[in-house]
Structures are given as C-alpha cells and as structure tokens.
Amino acid sequence: MFSRKTKMIRSEFESIASLEEVVIGGIKQMILVRGENVENPIMLFLHGGPGTAQIGFAPKFQRDLEKDFVVVNWDQRGSGLSYSPAIKKEELTIENMVNDTVQLVEYLLKRFNQQKLFLVGHSWGTVLGTLVTKKCPQYIYSYIGIGQVVNMREGEKISYDYTIKKANELKKDKAIKELKKVELNPSDMKYLGVQRKWLMKLGGSFIGVSMYNLIYSNMFFANEYTIKD
C-alpha cells in the first residue's frame, strides 16, 4: 500500500508489467506499460480531464486488451504520478501537451521497435488525440475517440439543457436555482462545478455505477498509487 508497483503478468510469451519514470518535455513523467506479449502492437491511452489521471484505475478495466496489445497509460504533465509542484500553470498549454504526446509516441515506437501504434483518447484526451493524429499521422495505425470533443460549447449547451430539464421534471428547486445562477461557460470552473454536480445527481453522468465506485474506490486500492498519491 505504501510502495508503487504493478501486478506481474503471467504469459507463455515475453510479457511486460512496468511502472516507469520517463523524461518527456524535459519533465519526469510516469507511464504504466502492460501486455502479455511485448511483440504485440502498442495501444496508448490519453486520459481525460485535463488532469483526470488514470494509471490508478485503468488496469482493472483493460485486462482483456493486455492479451492483444502492449497497453500504455500515461499520467500527463501535472497529473497523478506526473504531478510536481515545480510545474507552472503557464506550462500547461495545449501546445506543450501535444508535444509531450508526440515525444512519448516516438519513445514507445523506438523502444518496442515498431513503426506505428494505436492511439486512444478519452474526453480531454480526444483533443490531444485529434491534434497528434493530425500532426504526425505517420505514427498512427488508428485513432479511437471516446467521448469525442467536437464542439465543446455546443456539447456543454446540450449537457446544461439536459440537466435543467431533469431538474424541472423532478421539481428540484435547489438545482434549478443553482443552475440558473451560473453562466454557461465551459472554461469557468464555477460553472463546471455546479453543472457537473447536478448532472451526476440527476442521472446524466454514469448509468448503474457511482463516481466513487468507478474511480475513487479503484484508485484507493490500486497497487500503482500509494495513499499519498
């Protein structure tokens, strides 16, 4: 519980199960590499947020993928195991994150002696995934977008309208009052805090599972994260 590690993978092939520190963009960052066969194609996951690092919970949901891919999870600059108080907020730009991703892709291809990889983006990670695929398509077999960002403002409007509609249907006066107080602005943390709170409470975020069970309980018991992490 107090030391970082990842479970070994038993396989008839040369497997890999490694939690590693690499220097990306001049900063020490952490990646988790897991697969039953190091000769399999690479699949790199770009987590959401920004800042929703997933090394602590992703392995539980990706075990089947480890049979056919070398699965790589990366806690992006400033997130999770790649957090550092030395990182300045001015450095957390889309340009730097895209450059970090390209550098990591090149590192993985060279390390595993492969020409291309599969790139998977989730939510904020789809912004990175789209831009990286456009910048260096020669490195990408296929890009897979999950919760793909296309038009953030329009997406937020749809989500906000759903939430206020559900609040009215269920006669949730407190929710209606709070939602009407905030101005729809996807870059405003106050707006996001209020809208996401009521979105989850009114059933519009996850189906059949809570945020706690999906993420936090898994991270708390993860081998890859310590209590401090």
Rank of each mutant, 00 (worst) to 15 (best):
M189V: 12
M200G: 15
E154H: 08
K190S: 14
G145S: 15
R153Q: 09
W198E: 07
N185Q: 02
E178L: 08
Y160P: 06
K174Y: 12
S84N: 13
L199Q: 12
M97L: 15
N151P: 05
N185P: 04
K181G: 03
C136Y: 04
F118H: 14
D100S: 09
S84H: 11
E154Y: 10
Q138Y: 10
Q115R: 15
R196D: 10
L104N: 11
E106A: 10
W124E: 03
E183L: 01
K201G: 06
Y191G: 07
E154C: 00
K165F: 09
V105G: 07
L108M: 13
Q115A: 09
K181N: 11
E90K: 14
I94L: 15
L109M: 05
V150N: 13
A175W: 03
M97V: 00
Y107I: 12
Q115D: 15
T126Y: 05
Y143H: 13
L131C: 03
M97D: 11
A175N: 02
D188M: 04
G125R: 01
E178S: 06
M97S: 08
K201S: 09
D188H: 03
I176Y: 01
L179F: 01
M152G: 06
P85D: 07
N151S: 14
L199Y: 03
E90S: 15
E154P: 00
Q114Y: 02
S159I: 04
L109W: 09
A167L: 00
S84F: 10
K181E: 10
W198I: 08
Q115Y: 10
W124I: 02
V194A: 07
Q195S: 13
S82F: 03
L117A: 09
V194H: 05
S142W: 05
S142F: 12
D161W: 01
L128V: 11
L108S: 04
G125W: 03
A86G: 10
C136E: 08
F112I: 01
L128Y: 07
Y143Q: 12
D188K: 06
